[in-house]
Amino acid sequence: MNLTLRVWRQKNAKTAGQFVTYQARDISSEMSFLEMLDVVNEELIKSGEEQIAFDHDCREGICGSCGLVINGTPHGPLAATTSCQLHMRFFKDGDTITIEPWRAAPFPVIKDLVVDRTAFDRIIQAGGYVSVSTGGAPDGNAVSIPKDDADKAMDAAQCIGCGACVAACKNASAMLFVSAKISHLGLLPQGKVEADHRVLNMVAQMDEEGFGNCTNTGSCEAACPKEITLDNIARMNRSYAKAIFKSKLS
C-alpha cells in the first residue's frame, strides 16, 4: 500500500518544528508501524537527508521507549497496543497518517518525535520504591500475601512508563503513571511501611515537574497500552488524604 505521512520534524528543543509530508511507498500490511517508518528513513538516508528520529528499543511492547501520537491518538488506533506492536494492516492504501510527538510541557521535544521523559524518573526517585538495601531481606515466604493483593499489585506494576497517559490527557496529567506505582507498592505489605511518605513525596515531585491535574476523563486509561485502570488514581487520592491528615496529627 502507499501512504502519505505528515510527520512532525523539529531539529532540537530550541528551534520551532513543523509538519513535513512524506510518501511511504510499497508498504506491506505485515509491517509494524515502526518498520514502516524504517522504510521511509532508509529512503531519506539514501537521499542524504536526516532520518526521522523516534525512540524505540525492544519492539515487543515492553520497554516503553516508543511513543508516537498517530492520528491524534497516543500509540495509534488499537487499544492496549504500543506503537511498535501496531501493524500496518490497520491502515488502508491511500491513507494520510499524522505522526506527532507526545505533547506535554514536562516532556519537552528533543528532536522530531523524541521527547524527554526524565520527569518520570525523577518522580520514581522521589519515592517509588521500598527502602530496603541489598542483604538482610527475610525469607521470601516469611510474609504471606493474599493472592488477590498480589494480583492487583501486579496489574498496577505492569506500567511500562511510556507516558501515553500524559500524552492522551488534555491536561498532561501524570496521575495514572504515579498512581500505578503507588498502588503497586501500597498494596503489598512490604510497601505499606512507607506508603505515606511515598505518596506525599511522589505527588510533590509530580507537581514540581509541572504535570497537569486529573479531571477524571479517563483518556489516560483508554490510551494505556498496559490497561492500567482509573481506580489506581482513586486509590492514590485516598492514600494521599490519609497520609496528609496523619502527617498533620503526628
Partner: peptide
Amino acid sequence: IDQCVAQGVPFARE
C-alpha cells in the same frame, strides 16, 4: 528471591 520480595516485586502467589 528474598531481596526482590522485600523490594516489592509482585511475584505470582498461590
